[in-house]
Design a protein around this nucleic acid. Structure first.
Lengths: 155, 155
DNA sequence: GCATTCTTGACGTATGCGGTCAGCAATAGC
DNA sequence: GCTATTGCTGACCGCATACGTCAAGAATGC
């Protein structure tokens, strides 16, 4: 029930791409310089984000990582699920009726049902905040914008 | 961002005391028999719950652990905080104005502020469910009630 | 005095997080 | 085609924490 540093790194990196480079290909080195994240660890995190379809990558001289969706289509819940798996809970809820009948008779399943409700509500919270909200907040707070040298694409 | 088995054990044990024994002293052995929790580990968990003022204990033949507050005054949030500490997040938000000014200029603090909002909302969710809700659910689901042999106090 | 039960603290073990490293593959510019 | 730059892959490691065990002691009731 705590926020891992892995997921905070992930969110900071995504914010960085969205805010400083408008979602365009951004080099790991540039992100690391701005965000104070261990470089090798960040690449590992990007692999998770890539598998989840949140970012894409491009190799070579003009390469880097970039957003595959627009910032308002990426929620914090997406990021959490991408880097540390779904917020699941050991739950004995079976799908077929007979098992559920049996299952509902133990206190184990009372608590399981409650945890289920709780995690669903937590998911709602996580899904209600998007990357776009973050960039907006960044502007409001007056974070200095700093595009990568030379060019600036828009997706 | 997952539910530890320690906190699920804690909740099951508290539910057990509230549901089967109406909050009266309940032996660890009885709870273990009903709830399938490692005995030694449960005692360790009870120490945390005791420090947090959720349960009390009594030694000897009629001993056991019991609730110190009524079930509707114990929330899941209380239990989570008792066994795994507060849902905090590494946040650079300083209290004095100067530091906050400086801090707000980095993207680190944008994400920190967002995490702060999110964890506050998660806390609200956790604080909105009480032990009483659990026992009610247990009754609705028809969990068999089983008072400890011999006597049955009411606080 | 004796059985029962909680108390305490040390101990072990496994899992996963946070982080590193070396070597390979693709891209761009010459 | 050569080279520099960048991402890709997967193995590796130390450490903290979660999880669980054990043994001896202290309180309580009979």
């Amino acid at each position: 029930m705590r926020i891992s540093s892995k997921v905070t790194y992930a969110l900071r990196a995504l914010f960085d791409i969205a805010f400083h480079n408008l979602g365009a290909p951004t080099k790991v080195d540039a992100i690391v310089a701005r965000e104070d994240i261990p470089a090798r660890f960040l690449e590992q995190i990007f692999q998770d984000l890539k598998e989840a379809g949140i970012v894409g990558s491009k190799r070579g001289r003009t390469g880097g990582y970039f957003l595959l969706r627009s910032p308002d289509a990426v929620t914090i819940g997406d990021v959490v699920r991408a880097v540390e798996g779904p917020l699941e809970h050991p739950c004995c809820y079976a799908t077929d009726a007979e098992l559920r009948e049996k299952c509902a008779l133990t206190s184990k399943c009372v608590t399981a049902a409650v945890w289920r409700d709780v995690t669903l509500r937590i998911d709602e919270v996580l899904n209600s905040v998007t990357l776009a909200d973050l960039t907006l907040k960044g502007e409001l707070l007056g974070v200095k914008r700093e595009a990568d040298a030379g060019f600036s694409y828009v997706i």
